Simulated scan of single mutants.
Amino acid sequence: MSDFRRVPMGVDPYKPSSARIYNYMLGGKDYYEADLEYAEQVLRVAPDSKALARMSRRFLLQGVEVAVGAGVCQIVDVGAGIPISPSVYEVARKVEPSVRVVSIDFDPVVHAHATAMLSGAAGNTPMLADLRQPADMIDRLSSEGLIDFAQPVAVLIVGVLHFIMDEENPGGILAELRAAMAPGSYLVVTHATSESDSRFVRQAMSATKGSSAVPALRSRAEIASYLEGLETLAPGLAPIQDWLDDDLPATRVEILGCICRKS
Rank of each mutant, 00 (worst) to 15 (best):
M1G: 02
S2M: 02
F4Y: 03
R5H: 09
R5A: 13
R5D: 10
R6Q: 12
V11Q: 03
P13G: 03
S17N: 13
R20T: 05
Y24H: 13
L26S: 10
L26N: 07
K29P: 00
D35F: 03
D35R: 05
L43M: 11
A51Q: 12
A51T: 11
S56D: 05
L61A: 03
Q62A: 13
V64W: 07
V72G: 05
V72M: 08
C73M: 12
V78F: 08
G81F: 04
S85P: 04
P86W: 11
E90I: 04
K94H: 10
K94Y: 01
E96L: 12
P97W: 12
S103I: 01
D107P: 05
H113G: 00
T115A: 14
P126W: 13
L131W: 09
D136A: 15
R140D: 13
L141K: 10
G145H: 06
G145A: 06
G145Q: 12
I147A: 10
F149V: 01
F149D: 05
P152A: 09
P152D: 08
V153Y: 11
A154C: 15
L156G: 07
L156C: 03
V158A: 07
L161Q: 06
I164M: 07
D166A: 15
E167C: 06
A175F: 01
R178N: 05
R178L: 01
R178G: 01
A180R: 13
A182L: 09
P183W: 09
L187I: 11
T190N: 04
T190R: 08
S196K: 06
D197N: 14
R199I: 10
F200P: 00
F200S: 02
R202E: 14
Q203E: 11
A204G: 00
M205N: 14
A207V: 02
T208G: 02
R220V: 12
R220H: 15
A224L: 10
Y226N: 04
E231K: 10
T232S: 13
A238Y: 04
P239L: 09
Q241I: 04
Q241T: 15
Q241S: 15
W243H: 15
W243P: 00
D245V: 08
D245A: 13
D246K: 05
A250D: 07
G257L: 00
C260A: 15
R261D: 00
K262E: 02
